[in-house]
């Protein structure tokens, strides 16, 4: 697929967002991502969970995308894998956790629990549902990435419909 030389007709010209926005994004980006992890891990017995966490992480990615030219945005964009891969890993984790209990003679989606005593953290309550939640998290993040690559200015290398504008 050939990449167009300049901006295609009809797409908004790449303009710099405000300095405030760039700097602000650089400041909050990591905090938002950490918050999303917080939501992800507390989700089992408290408000939170994979979907909410994924959406929060997705917001961070959207911010990074909109800020575009900032170093944090560039790093985030460079570090993100293809949406299809993220979706795939997420789906694999979620569906895999759903069927895993079969191996032990359990029921679909049944969750195992353990309460190990970790040296520094103390008692930790772990559920295998967490892996399912991580899968959901990745699916949502993958979806946000797919949306960005489809609807964003560099549309072309996308998973969803819309990858052929440069015909």
């Amino acid at each position: 697929m050939s990449t167009p030389a300049g901006p295609r007709p009809g797409t908004p010209s790449p303009r710099r967002p405000s300095v405030l926005f760039e700097v602000g994004t650089g400041l909050v980006l990591h905090a938002v991502l950490v918050t999303s992890l917080f939501f992800l891990f507390r989700g089992h017995n408290a408000p939170g969970g994979g979907f909410i966490a994924g959406l929060v992480a997705g917001t961070a990615l959207v911010l990074a995308y909109l800020a575009g030219d900032t170093s944090a945005g560039r790093r985030a964009a460079g570090a993100t894998p293809r949406p299809g891969v993220v979706l795939g890993v997420g789906l694999l984790l979620a569906a895999g956790t759903a069927v895993a209990p079969w191996l032990g003679g359990g029921q679909v989606l049944e969750s195992g629990y353990s309460h190990p005593h970790v040296p520094v953290l103390g008692g930790v309550s772990l559920a295998s549902v967490l892996i399912f939640d991580i899968g959901v998290y990745l699916v949502v993040v993958g979806l946000v990435l797919a949306v960005l690559s489809t609807l964003g200015e560099q549309a072309g290398t996308s998973l969803a419909p819309g990858g052929e504008e440069d015909r």
């Binding site: 797919a146 949306v147 489809t150 609807l151 969803a160 419909p161 819309g162």
Partner: peptide, 14 residues
């Protein structure tokens, strides 16, 4: 609806 809206937006953009 989040997923479907995303897809719908992609098709609309197309």
């Amino acid at each position: 609806s989040f997923a479907v809206s995303a897809l719908l937006l992609a098709v609309a953009y197309r």
